[in-house]
Each structure stands twice: as C-alpha cells, then as structure tokens.
Amino acid sequence: MMPSRRDILTLIASLSVSPAMAEDTLALRQSRTLPRVATRVVALEFLIAETLAMLDRPPIGMSDPKYYPGWIGLELDRLAGVTDVGTRQQPSLEAIARLKPDLIIGLAYRHAPLFDVLESLAPTVLLEFGVGQTGTQLDAVLELIGMIGAYVGRDPEAAKIRAEVERSIAEDAARLAQAGRSGRRLVVLQELGGLDTYWVFTANSMSAGLAQRLGLDFWPKDRGRDGVRVLTSQELLALDDVDIALVSYSGPQVDLAAKTKSAAWAHVPALAQGRVTLIERNIWNFGGPASARHLATRLTDMVLAAP
C-alpha cells in the first residue's frame, strides 16, 4: 500500500521534534539572558501583541499593525500608536533595531531561521505554538498568558486574566447547558476566497479547545497542521445536524446568502436548516486570550440562536 500523505507528514513531524525538546515547554529557543522585567517588547505575531495588551504592557513595536484591526480587532485602545515593524513573515530588522527593544517575542514556526539575527538586536524568545499530540491551541494560548506575564513582570495580573478568560468561557458553557444545547455538533470554517474552498479547523485548533470547554461536540476529529486543513466538497455536502460557523473572508458588505450561492451549498443540509452563521472577518482562531474569550461568546451566541 502506498503510504498516505498523512503518514509521511507524521513521519516528518516525528523526525523533526528531537527528544531533547519536551512538549511542555512553549519556548523553542530563547536567549541565554533575558531581562528580569522587559519594558520595551517587540511582538512579531498578533497573538503576542494581543496578550501583551491584555497585560497592560503593550509592545512598542508589532508586525502588521495595519492588518490587526481588521483581523483581530480586540484590545485596540492599548495597541493604538504601536510602531509598525513590517510583516509577520519578514519583520523589518532595521525598524526593530531603531526601537531599541529589550525583548523580542516571535513564533518558532515563522521566525526560527531568524533567531541569530534577532538575538543580535535584543534578547529573543521564540514560542513553539505546535501543540503536541493531545492539546489544543487554546491550552497553548492560556499557558502563554503566564509565560508572557513573567517576561514583563506581571505574574499576578496574568493569573487574574487567565482566570477571567476561563471564567468567561465557563459562563458561556453554562448558558449553553441552561438552554439544553450542550452536546450539539460544531464545525468552524474559514473562507479562503476561492469558490467552495475552505479551511476547516481541526481537533487541535482553538475552536476545538473552546468546544471542549463549552460542552459542544467538535467535528472533525483529526489534527491538522496549524489546526486547519482543507475541507473537501464531499465533506461539505455531508454536513447534517451541525451548527456551522463560517468565518468570512470579505468585509461586512457581503452577507451569508451571497457566500452560499454556489450549487454545492444548496445541498448542504445545515444551510437549509438555518444552522449556518456568518461570522465577520477575523482570525481569532490564531489569536490570543482576548480572541479566545470573544470567539467563545460568538460561538455560544450562534448555537443559542440556531433553530
């Protein structure tokens, strides 16, 4: 039998994680000496900037600030006026250097090849956001609060924020239970701009972690790279007895009817049942604690509003 693509990827994945790197640490690489309390932090990813903003220690520089309002849109007040340091994939090293940061926080999967260069500018931490064999990205995000809190000397506040986020999610779960809607099946799709082409969030995504805590049944059960995989049209047609959150790719001017005009959608049972909800453009699934809290509420409202 031909080895399937997934087998091969699993093989690559298993080879690529050396045993020395335990899964419980979220930092793939970090500089030997870090400041005791960092005050000038550069965040190279939305979720890091978002976490810092929640801790009331907004970064002095962040990647793609002009896209942040459109794609995350949370904690905007505290992130107003943060310096643009280029794209998340290729941050401008010069812009970072000129900010004279005392800590740079990035993500391993994007910035690992840049570690040496970043470290030459300031102490650097690269967070590993891959989540092992069982966890979800929600678990990682919750862990990150404490970790980032420690870097900026806000440990008590971090614990408080984590508790607050978990409490908010628990409240949503209670709302669902009260309405007798626990155990409903949930699917979260992200639009990609192509016809009938979607990412479906998988069992290791933040949505899956939220569903678990909200007491909902999450589909699909497989674990994709970065918490997503491409959804096939056949799978789309089979979406029966599920609540579907369709995360939009365009602005608010395009409504659900326009999104589901294709011939295939006409045959999706969930759409006929009125159980497909368009959620405004966002990437909360790749965001931080505020995103998690917000997404939980939106998903709960959606399930409650569904027939």
Binding site: R5, L9, I12, Q89, R110, D226, V228
Partner: peptide
C-alpha cells in the same frame, strides 16, 4: 503540506 501559511512557501 507542512504549513498553512502560503507566504512562507512563496518567500
């Protein structure tokens, strides 16, 4: 296949 980010591939 190893990442969901097309920008990485292109770059």
């Amino acid at each position: 296949e190893t990442s969901a980010q097309p920008a990485r591939a292109l770059i």
